[in-house]
Amino acid sequence: MENRLIVSSSPHIRSNETTSKIMRDVVIALLPATLAGVYFFRMGAVKVILAAVIAAVLTEAFIQKICNKPVTINDYSAVVTGLLLAFNIPASAPWWLPVIGSIFAIAIVKQVFGGLGHNFMNPALAARAMLLASWPVQMTAWVKPGADAVSTATPLAILGGEATESLPSLADLIIGNVGGCIGETSAILLILGGIYLVYRGVIAPKIPVVYIVTVAVLTFIFGGFDAQFMVYQIFAGGLMLGAIYMATDYASSPVTPKGQMIFALGCGVLTSVIRIYGGYPEGVSYSILLMNVAAPLIDKYTSPRVFGEVK
């Protein structure tokens, strides 16, 4: 043989799944909700989404460049972070708000800890929490869907008694024709994207289902066995977005089967507690962030039984 052969240890074939394919699937899954956000909140949504995504991608490229690391913006992970952050911001926000958020998410939460896969928290959620603490007014300036940007309250705030408007109809709530962050309002389209992700094998239904069911059961019991209250709790706010797209973030959730159950259950309990007893009408982001921090510990104590192991 004239040429040199490649010698490596087995296996010699790899699946054609790649990180960028997975991230691209997440972007595709988020597209319907993105379009709905643009439809409901018009140019305000376009501005926030573009600012967040562009800032996220540029920050990633810039940091990798100055660190002399290979630039990996074509793996779509920064796009996902930017998009998810934009989903968590009201359409009325000034353009610099998502920009600061994206820079924080990528530079501080993701790259400082080692980049893709090493973030211990969901970058988009951590950025949202930072923005909410720093610019509470701009981050809660909800507007009604439509071109004229009339200010309004979110259904959860109305439910919690912080606002006196009348509750929107359930149909409007599920379609997303209500006040709220850009991407979290349309429960039905978020679920559609989630089904796509499950079909593509990107996420398992376990975390979202356990999370949502936990919230449903707890809000039903502690909301005084009020079915309407429970249904609004499930479809309002960021629960669908959080449960399907944030709690399932690979890097910041456990990998063990049992660990994922505990993680999702914990998210559900915390969300319900914050919503019902806490000072905030919404508790999804904080509960996921808290469980993110606990994920390594959960993984450590939930190692699966090894084949043939007698415990």
């Binding site: 990180t19 793996d75 893709l116 690979y250 990998v255 190692s303």
Partner: peptide
């Protein structure tokens, strides 16, 4: 490229290990 902790190796390991 970097491990993204997707957990696929854990799901499929026939010895129930955590390869990552």
């Amino acid at each position: 490229t970097s491990c993204i902790k997707c957990g696929k190796c854990v799901d499929i390991c026939p010895a129930f290990l955590q390869p990552l």
